[in-house]
Design a protein around this nucleic acid. Structure first.
Length: 813
RNA sequence: GCGGUCGUGGCGGAACUGGCAGACGCGCAAGACUAAGGAUCUUGUGGGUAACUCCAUGCAGGUUCAAUUCCUGUCGACCGCACCA
């Protein structure tokens, strides 16, 4: 039997030499951009997840190549980021050194995988020739007004000593280290992703993505239609609230501000008698960690400010409260409280003895408060008698007329905070000048290089801040002394545009050429984990749209089709993790069986999008299967041409199975259903073996073409092995230059098909029926069958249902 | 709490727009070849029954000639969001 290891390295060397996997620009009109999410070199080695993402997707790519597409399948490294820096803090090994070393190992392993990656387009986001353009991207967004700085409450991880994006906070904890996240005021750079909220939402309809992922993005964007309403405050300020229920406006009993609301200080000054209580409450709200604060079960608490606001329609005074059930980050950070028709407001009003005014009446039934459904308006002046929907519209229109508010669409999505007080990232290309303020680094001065000799141990400040050589610079506007921005960019910025750079990876003058990008993109099929649904995948869409609006590209969505692979769990059914002690290393399997067999097993043993617990029982059976194929091929080569030349029943049967197999694979691979594809190939192998065993005198020429077709079919699934077999069959060129076998529909037409025959929906017989008969003729054939005739004897046929090529159901009585 | 996905043999998993449930493989059993078999090949394999047949896709209903597939309820698992005004 073949030594898989040497066969694999032999073919990897040949592919490299013949540049088999390099994208040929001449065939750009047939391009197919197949992309896997690039690797993050945090660990030194590839894990099962990498293999599961890249192996099967490579099979898809190779399959499409054999179908005649010019496939572009690049690979690279998302190399900046926290883990390398955390590792550096622990061990003292510089992030650049450890990252480069990890990349070297992973790259070698990826090459050994034997995927058709086009390494000529490789990118590493931590290299100057890449992050120069990440900085360029930042400058373009800045010019366009999409990058701005604001003082903001940010999520601060005390352990990583850095700011986290909302998306990186999971259950009030740091996504990476699980420390409880605190709130802290800081000046940060933000990208105005909210400008694109509406388009990000509506364009979901134009892309072929899993519905689940689209729904997650939809919920993340969180569009809600409602009304903005202004309440005059006694300090002369205006409190603006957002509500989806303006129909309940007459039922407002009080107004609530989030404890972080900027107006709180003013109200406190106006009511010094309540200052202590307000301070205490603000402190109480700030001290509560996010987990408690976000708990639905948390008891409603709050404090009266002493101040009042004026109801915009009734002119009545309503008290202003602070309560932490109002979130500063959503809407306007203030709500109008309608105790009778909102559960939270009801609970709060009951607790603090506030009045409750019913303004909605249930249609047909008793109204039990709090009543949160739609109904007919009462106690609402001129709006009495309107339905909820009519009232929402009428009140909004009225508010607009009197200048006290109006219709408003609100989004849950917040702007993307991109500043990181971290070393291992792309420096933000901005300069702070005492005279000129914030000044962008001129594009000709890019990249702003990340210095090597930096103290990266956390101090609470950005590591770069204490590097004088980096910080001190001259202002590009006035030429005076100035300071660089000490922060680096969120690594999601690096990964939000890498798919564009791949297409033009060696361009030294631009991030990418517009022409090339428009030809090569969008990515036709993008494959990666679903954990990126609301982060990377949303950011990349935003950046694409922003670049389009700046005229750099002419398409609106980066990834036409998206596929998520499932997750391979540990043998115990838990996620693989060191703490569970259930991590499976692919390396031992690769050593024993080689890349092809490992990949085949990953494809055969799991439903690709489901994943599941690891179990290596099946891997031996794949090895056996491969050996069986090899035996068949070698044996077929020993046959001398001759034997019979005509195609008899046995040949027709084999031809049928072959074409059925081709047809199934063609459909299944397109759907990333690799397990069924391989099952069909196994059936075909069984059929070949059966033909070989049962026909002492074979049609050798025919049999040999069937065996060669098997190699072509198998090639995308077991690339090295198939190349070797192809060579054994006497072929000089790569099997990947062959066309994938095409279905001969003629071979699939059988003279007769087996029908299941039901009588009163119960299966009674299976009979062969000739092709091309009408329903009536089929019924006649069925009734003539002795078995069926016995069943229906003495009964009349009430109905006969014929499903072509499948079954006949006779309803008798 | 809200939204979503999924529950199929001992196991991994199939079943295209409702149409023969359990493809393919593992495991198991019997046999062949063997000094030997953990190699290879053949056969069998959802459950009950002596058999005709009957029961089976988490559970309970419904629609239909026909339901793993559609609908309602319910239990369980997983994922996402979570005081969203």
């Amino acid at each position: 039997m073949m030594d898989m290891k040497s066969v694999e390295s032999k073919w990897q060397a040949k592919w490299e030499k013949t540049k088999l996997n390099v994208f040929n620009k001449k065939n750009a009109d047939k391009k197919l951009y197949v992309l896997e999410m690039f690797s993050y070199p945090s660990g030194a080695k590839l894990h099962v997840g990498h293999w599961y993402n890249y192996g099967p997707t490579d099979t898809y790519a190779r399959f499409k190549k054999m179908q005649g597409y010019e496939v572009f399948q690049p690979m690279g490294f998302d190399a900046f980021g926290l883990p390398a820096e955390n590792y550096a803090i622990k061990t003292g090994i510089h992030p650049k050194d450890s990252t480069e070393k990890n990349i070297e190992t992973m790259e070698r392993q990826l090459r050994n995988m034997g995927a058709m990656f086009d390494w000529s387009a490789e990118i590493k986001t931590c290299e100057e020739n890449y992050y120069k353009w990440t900085q360029w991207l930042f400058l373009q967004l800045y010019k366009k007004g999409l990058a701005y700085r604001k003082e903001a409450l940010v999520n601060w991880c005390p352990s990583c000593e850095t700011v986290l994006a909302n998306e990186q906070v999971v259950d009030g904890k740091c996504e990476r280290c699980s420390s409880v996240v605190l709130r802290k005021d800081m000046t940060q750079w933000f990208f105005k992703i909210t400008d694109y909220a509406e388009e990000l939402l509506t364009d979901l309809d134009t892309i072929d993505w899993p519905e689940k992922t689209k729904l997650m993005q939809k919920n993340w964007i969180g569009r809600s239609t409602g009304c903005e309403i202004h309440f005059e405050c006694e300090t002369g300020d205006t409190i603006t609230v957002f509500t989806t229920r303006p129909d309940t406006l007459f039922g407002v009993n009080y107004v609530v501000l989030a404890p972080e609301h900027p107006l709180v200080d003013k109200l406190k000054a106006a009511h010094p008698e309540n200052a202590d209580a307000i301070d205490a409450y603000v402190r109480y709200a700030a001290e509560a960690n996010d987990i408690d604060r976000l708990s639905t079960a948390r008891e409603k608490t709050g404090v009266f400010t002493g101040a009042y606001a004026i109801h915009p329609l009734t002119g009545k005074q309503v008290p202003i409260y602070l309560a932490d059930y109002v979130l500063y980050s959503y809407g306007t950070g203030a709500v109008m409280a309608v105790a009778a028709h909102d559960e939270r407001d009801y609970a709060f009003a009951t607790k603090y003895g506030l009045p409750i005014t019913q303004v909605i009446q249930k249609v047909g039934g008793e109204t039990i408060l709090p009543y949160c459904e739609d109904g007919i308006l009462v106690n609402s002046g001129e709006f009495d008698g309107l339905s909820g929907e009519e009232a929402r519209d009428a009140i909004a229109v009225h508010l607009t007329k009197i200048g006290k508010g109006g219709k408003k669409i609100n989004y849950r999505l917040r702007d993307w905070s991109v500043s990181r007080q971290r070393y291992w990232g792309a420096p933000i290309p901005m300069i702070h000048c005492e005279k000129c303020g914030v000044v962008p680094v001129p594009e000709k001065d890019l990249p702003v290089k990340l210095p090597y000799d930096v103290e990266f141990r956390p101090t609470g400040k950005s590591p770069l801040a204490s590097h004088e050589g980096f910080m001190n610079c001259t202002c590009p506007e006035c030429g005076g002394k100035a300071q660089r921005d000490p922060d680096t960019l969120d690594t999601f910025v690096c990964s939000s545009w890498y798919y564009l750079r791949y297409a033009d990876a060696h361009n030294e003058k631009q991030a990418f050429s517009t022409d090339v990008a428009n030809k090569m993109l969008p990515v036709d099929v993008y494959v990666g984990g679903s954990e990126h649904a609301c982060m990377h995948l949303l950011y990349a869409r935003f950046i694409t749209k922003a670049l389009r609006d700046m005229g750099y590209i002419d398409f609106s969505e980066p990834f036409k089709r998206l596929v998520h692979q499932g997750i391979i769990l540990g043998p115990d059914g838990n996620r693989m993790s060191k703490s569970h002690g259930n991590v499976i290393s692919p390396d031992t399997y690769i050593d024993e069986y080689g890349s092809d067999i490992f990949r085949l097993y990953l494809m055969f043993g799991f439903s690709y999008t489901e994943g599941g617990p690891w179990n290596d029982d099946g891997i031996k059976s794949i090895a056996r299967f491969i050996e069986r194929v090899e035996r068949i091929v070698r044996k077929s080569q020993e046959e001398t041409n001759g034997g019979r030349t005509e195609k008899g029943a046995a040949e027709k049967e084999l031809d049928y199975v072959k074409n059925h197999t081709i047809k199934s694979i063609t459909r299944d691979v397109e759907a990333f259903s690799f397990n069924t594809s391989i099952a069909r190939i196994m059936e075909y192998v069984n059929a070949l073996q059966k033909y070989d065993a049962e026909n002492a005198e074979k049609n050798v020429a025919f049999y040999k073409t069937c065996v060669e077709d098997l190699i072509r079919m198998l090639a995308p699934f077991a690339p090295h092995f198939s190349e070797e077999l192809w060579e054994i069959c006497g072929n000089k060129d790569s099997v990947f230059l062959e066309e994938y076998p095409l279905v001969n529909e003629q071979a699939l037409i059988k003279d007769e098909t087996e029908y299941a025959i039901q009588v009163n929906s119960k299966i009674k017989a299976k009979i062969l029926i000739a092709q091309g008969l009408s329903d009536e003729e089929i019924q006649a054939v069925v009734c003539a069958n002795p078995e069926i005739a016995a069943q229906i004897e003495g009964k009349s046929i009430k109905k006969c249902i014929v499903v072509k090529n499948r079954l006949v159901n006779l309803i008798v009585g």
